[in-house]
Lab assay of single mutants.
Amino acid sequence: QNEKLANELKSLLDELNVNELATGSLNTYYKRTIKISGQKAMYALKSKDFKKMSEAKYQLQKIYNEIDEA
């Protein structure tokens, strides 16, 4: 289960640069939040902690959705 979550989180991290570029014309909230979420996700992957990875995955998905809707 950890392996599956780690792969999903890696996949979301692969999209980080594209989504970060998409924040160029948006409010600074999005820029700041996506950077923080990305850092948390990288830390969670290194720690291999299921709870941290779950939270990081949720945060990344949430900010990606917010950027898409903005």
Rank of each mutant, 00 (worst) to 15 (best):
S25C: 14
Y43I: 14
D14I: 06
K51H: 09
I63W: 02
N27F: 05
M53N: 02
T33W: 14
G24R: 15
L45V: 03
E66C: 11
N7Y: 13
N27T: 11
G24P: 04
L16K: 02
F50R: 05
I63R: 01
T28G: 13
S11L: 13
L5H: 01
L60G: 01
F50T: 07
Y29S: 04
L21V: 08
Y29T: 03
K35G: 04
R32S: 06
L26T: 03
N19S: 07
N19H: 15
Q1N: 10
L9S: 01
A6D: 02
E55M: 08
K35R: 11
V18H: 11
A22M: 14
S25V: 10
M42Y: 10
K52T: 07
R32W: 12
K52P: 01
K62M: 07
M42H: 08
I36L: 10
L45H: 03
Y30K: 03
L9H: 01
T23E: 04
Y64V: 06
L60M: 03
K62P: 00
D14A: 12
L13R: 00
A41Q: 00
L9F: 01
A22S: 06
R32Y: 13
Q1V: 12
L5C: 15
N19T: 07
L21F: 07
K46H: 09
K52I: 08
R32P: 01
Y29W: 08
E69S: 10
K10V: 05
L5N: 00
M53H: 00
K62R: 09
I36E: 08
N2F: 15
T28F: 13
S54E: 13
E69W: 12
Y30G: 01
Y29M: 04
K48M: 14
Y58W: 10
D14Y: 08
L21G: 05
R32A: 06
E55P: 01
K31H: 05
S25A: 11
D68L: 15
N17M: 14
S25Q: 10
E8W: 05
T28W: 14
Q59T: 05
K57P: 00
Q1G: 07
I63K: 01
T33S: 11
T33M: 15
E15W: 13
A70P: 03
I34T: 01
Y58R: 11
K48V: 02
L16V: 03
E55A: 09
K62V: 05
A44G: 01
K62H: 06
I36Y: 09
V18D: 09
K35T: 07
S11C: 13
D68N: 14
T23A: 15
K31A: 09
G38W: 15
S54L: 15
A70M: 09
I63L: 07
L60T: 01
F50C: 06
E55V: 09
K46C: 10
T23Q: 06
S11V: 10
K57C: 08
Y58I: 12
L21I: 10
T23Y: 06
V18R: 14
R32E: 12
L13T: 02
L21C: 10
E69N: 10
N27D: 12
L9M: 01
A56E: 01
M42W: 12
L26E: 04
S25H: 12
L9N: 00
N27L: 05
N2E: 11
E8R: 03
N17G: 12
A41D: 01
Q39A: 11
A44I: 02
A22L: 14
V18P: 04
L60F: 02
M53L: 03
K40R: 12
L60Y: 02
T33L: 15
E3Y: 07
G38Y: 14
D49R: 02
E3K: 07
N2K: 12
S54D: 05
E3L: 09
Q59F: 14
L16Y: 14
L26C: 08
T28L: 11
